[in-house]
């Protein structure tokens, strides 16, 4: 690791002002991606601003029919939270399948969505559920927030404060995990809200998380596992690596979508 200075603010304002005043400061949330990145010397921030002391960024609540999760809420807390479990059980299940128990005890929803790893689970949930990402400056719909692999609409110095997820009529997530890392080789979240069906895919796309509009259309006709599985997904925009070829990922998108649909009903 390159050397850096460390700060632990106790409010969002203090964190934002530290980010603005330091030469090249980075936020650390749970650190489960950032610390390995620093260890590999793939990043060289001058300052680390640790958000773990900001109490207002933690916790889960309902605001009418919208589930609100503070950015610094860990995956383990989301998985075990009774409010999440009752409002959007698919989200609790998704959180319970991220990484391993120790990663879930540290990693946070705000960190995960800000990082937008192309194989992370939460981006698929936010996109399928039509969530809103609230930051220090504004509210951004998930459709506009995820802009590409490891890329988001966040401006320098902007901090994610909470995630707002409207409660769906039904939703489920199905993941084909890498057996070692538990990252999604392909993960598909299917959600129905107000008669609209949204299907979001992580792990597969060259540009990160995306909506599978072909499958959405098929499911609008008939909400069945067979309908999802019958959609032939093009491998053209799929990523390929040592874990899975583009063809295999394209195939898995339909299969995971069909499993998610089956889990919905």
């Amino acid at each position: 690791m390159y050397a850096f200075d460390y700060h632990k603010p106790s409010s969002v304002e203090e964190a934002a002002s530290l980010l603005a005043s330091k030469e090249d400061a980075t936020v650390v949330a749970g650190g489960q991606t950032l610390i390995p990145t620093l260890k590999h010397r793939l990043a060289q921030p001058t300052d680390l601003v640790d958000l773990s002391g900001v109490a207002e960024l933690k916790g889960v609540k309902m605001d009418g029919d919208t589930l609100v999760i503070g950015a610094m809420t860990t995956h383990a807390e989301v998985a075990a939270d009774a409010t999440v479990r009752s409002a959007i059980p698919a989200l609790a299940d998704l959180a319970d399948g991220i990484g391993d128990a120790q990663v879930r005890n540290c990693g946070t929803i705000g960190g995960s969505v800000s990082n937008n790893d192309p194989a992370a689970d939460y981006p698929a949930a936010l996109l399928a559920l039509g969530a809103t990402v609230v930051t220090t400056n504004r509210s951004i719909s998930a459709d506009d927030f995820f802009t590409g692999m490891f890329d988001t609409a966040l401006e320098p110095g902007e901090i994610v404060t909470e995630i707002r997820l409207p409660k769906p009529a039904r939703a489920a997530y199905a993941k084909f995990p890498n057996p070692a890392s538990r990252y999604a080789i392909v993960g598909v979240m299917v959600a129905e809200s107000g008669g609209q069906i949204r299907v979001a895919v992580t792990g597969a796309g060259q540009d990160g998380v995306f909506r599978a509009t072909d499958i959405e259309q098929a499911l609008s006709g008939a909400f069945s596992a067979e309908a999802a599985k019958a959609v032939k997904v093009s491998p053209e925009t799929m990523s390929a690596d040592i874990h899975a070829s583009a063809d295999y990922r394209a195939h898995l998108v339909s299969v995971m979508a069909s499993r998610a649909v089956a889990a919905c009903s």
């Binding site: 460390y6 650390v28 489960q32 610390i35 390995p36 680390l48 640790d50 120790q102 990663v103 540290c106």
Partner: peptide, 10 residues
């Protein structure tokens, strides 16, 4: 937690 993935300062 994994002590290799947390700073002493954290």
């Amino acid at each position: 937690v994994k002590a290799c993935t947390m700073l002493a300062a954290q």
